[in-house]
Design a protein around this nucleic acid. Structure first.
Ligand SMILES: [Mn+2]
Ligand SMILES: [Mn+2]
Ligand SMILES: [Zn+2]
Ligand SMILES: [Zn+2]
Lengths: 130, 130
DNA sequence: AAATTTAATGATAATGATTGTCATGTGCAA
DNA sequence: TTGCACATGACAATCATTATCATTAAATTT
């Protein structure tokens, strides 16, 4: 019954790469980066591992407008992101006021079992200076 | 130079269907609905028209987690949505406090040219009662 | 240290939404 | 009416993601 997650070389490699990366990266990018450092791993495995890590809330998954799914190693508490559209650098942000606002709005309209997506995009200071 | 948008039968049909629809719908769904009512239209044209309308801010476009792009005729002011995961019924919401919060947070971190995505998902009253 | 069990891997094929192509159609301004 | 530029749509292409399934290899049990 209890789902046993096996400790494989590939899973460790994906997790380790994410630990060393600050930006959101796509599955394909992560695959390429692993390859570049000589780690033998299949693309399918990268997809499955990222999915599995995301489900276990060990990595964050998001999809920017017009883009593919991106993954990043984040803190475990609920939070959102401020992402540079140009370089991908990411700042984790929390907004207690926003959280309670979302709950209140939803309740006012008779909705239950609420979830939300909230992401900020912009140009970071470094990229602004070209 | 000035982009002239031609008044075609197909474009009118898509716009009209959106006017009569309250929920977010995918391009494929809109294509099917048009077909069902006997409107001859190509799928490519539906995609292009929706894109064009979205660019002109005449319809709202969003993409729920794990889903395809969805389109809906909305009011023109900036707003967000509270969407039922079960039936798709949608409530437009505004959050002035959230808007200013987003601007402030971004500025504090040196980000400029800010945009954001914010959507609430839940189960509506009707669907809660099964 | 085997033997066993069963999840994980990965090469490959399939899927499916979206976009590109391009010959033909048509809105509309002159 | 005529002419032209944009619009249409059948069809092919793209490409991220998922499904298959034979093989590998953790973890557990003898
Ligand atoms: Mn939140
Ligand atoms: Mn907003
Ligand atoms: Zn940047
Ligand atoms: Zn509902």
């Amino acid at each position: 019954m209890a789902t046993v997650v096996r400790n494989t070389r590939q899973r460790s490699a994906v997790a380790q790469l994410l630990l060393e990366t600050d930006e959101f990266r796509s599955a394909q990018e992560i695959y390429d980066l692993l390859r570049q450092r000589g780690t033998s791993v299949g693309l399918t495995t990268v997809y499955r591992t990222l999915q599995s890590l995301a489900e276990a809330d060990e990595v964050d998954m998001m999809r920017p407008p017009g883009g593919d799914y991106l993954y990043r190693q984040c803190t475990t508490e609920h939070h959102h992101h401020l992402v540079c559209r140009s370089c991908g650098s990411t700042v984790e942000i929390t907004g207690p006021a926003v959280e309670s606002w979302a709950q209140r709005i939803a309740a006012e309209h008779g909705f239950s079992d609420i979830s939300h997506t909230l992401e900020l995009f912009g140009t970071c200071r470094t990229c602004s200076a070209q």
